[in-house]
């Protein structure tokens, strides 16, 4: 997914925000299923679903948990499927649980893709535009995290050589030693960071207007992409406000029909979520034609 990665961060960020909103707002089995399949396709195209595999077990259990939770606790609904003892299992609860399950799995899948495409640098870049000081704070923190991890290892080594281990001894000793490590890390790092603060001051931080390096430039294609997404979202919002793209379950479950207007909305939904696929396919075709 090279082309999609190359969009300006504002484009990719908007796409993920939009996709998340759709998974939350359009609770309709067809919409959810279509959206979920498209996200899977995007993962397949990006890395043959390798990134998703790490989360597979977590997503599956969460999805199943949510699916089961509803019928177990929720007896509301008129369409009785069966009863277990005195517990009513209704169609409403099962459908509702299923939709919630797909919604949450879909949201996680969107996040997994987000983590691949939106590198910390891209998010920092977006923050630098609106919240410059927060962006510097976040940049510093992200720089410190690997440093702290390295220092914790060093501290662990030294303290073990003194006979203080976090892996041996009673729970109390281990807990005490572990917190001792955090204490050394805190004291040491705050001491060393005095130099970080000085190095920032010495390079003129905090004096006059700070600019930010444009790691990314908005191109015409970025504007086109933003417009494309905006139009689709507007259509979807309009449809949603008029009751489409949403299966009403309570108080009365609506009959499962699929009017034409809903089909239009579904098309818009797919065009939005499938945006990265469209971009990549377009890129692939133009390559083929050119070469």
């Amino acid at each position: 997914m090279k082309r999609f990665h190359d969009f300006h961060p504002i484009v990719t960020f908007s796409y993920y925000i939009g996709a998340l909103t759709l998974f939350i707002m359009l609770l309709h089995p067809v919409f959810l299923a279509a959206g979920f399949l498209l996200i899977l396709a995007i993962h397949y195209m990006d890395d043959r679903c390798r990134g998703l595999q790490r989360w597979f077990f977590f997503m599956l259990t969460t999805g199943l948990f949510v699916l089961v939770l509803n019928p177990v606790f929720n007896e509301r609904g008129m369409n009785l499927l069966f009863t277990v003892g005195s517990h009513r299992v209704t169609l409403e609860a099962v459908v509702y649980g299923g939709m919630s399950g797909i919604s949450i799995i879909g949201i996680m899948a969107v996040f997994v893709s987000y983590n691949v495409v939106m590198s910390p640098n891209k998010l920092l870049f977006l923050f630098a535009k609106v919240l410059p000081r927060f962006a510097v704070l976040l940049m510093l923190t992200l720089r410190f995290i690997p440093l702290m991890r390295k220092r914790l290892t060093e501290i662990g080594d030294v303290q073990v050589s003194k006979g203080l281990s976090v892996r041996e001894g009673t729970l109390k000793e281990r807990g005490k030693n572990a917190m001792g490590h955090i204490q050394v890390l805190l004291t040491y790092s705050l001491e060393e960071a005095l130099q970080t603060a000085d190095s920032m001051k010495a390079r003129g931080y905090g004096y006059s207007g700070r600019s930010s390096y444009q790691h990314f430039v908005i191109k015409r294609s970025d504007i086109a992409a933003l417009l494309y997404m905006f139009v689709l979202l507007a259509i979807l919002a309009y449809g949603r406000l008029h009751g489409y793209g949403w299966l009403e379950i309570y108080p009365v479950m609506e009959a499962f029909t699929f009017p034409r207007k809903e089909a239009v909305l579904l098309a818009a939904h797919c065009l939005f979520i499938g945006f990265p696929l469209i971009v990549e396919t377009g890129e692939y075709i133009s390559w083929r034609i050119l070469n």
């Binding site: 940049m139 992200l142 720089r143 190095s199 390079r203 931080y205 004096y207 006059s208 390096y213």
Partner: peptide, 18 residues
């Protein structure tokens, strides 16, 4: 200790941005 950013380019431009 003097480093404020996690990539080299970000670090180099820090002073210039200021």
């Amino acid at each position: 200790n003097q480093v404020v950013a996690d990539t080299v380019l970000h670090e180099l431009v820090f002073g210039l941005e200021n």
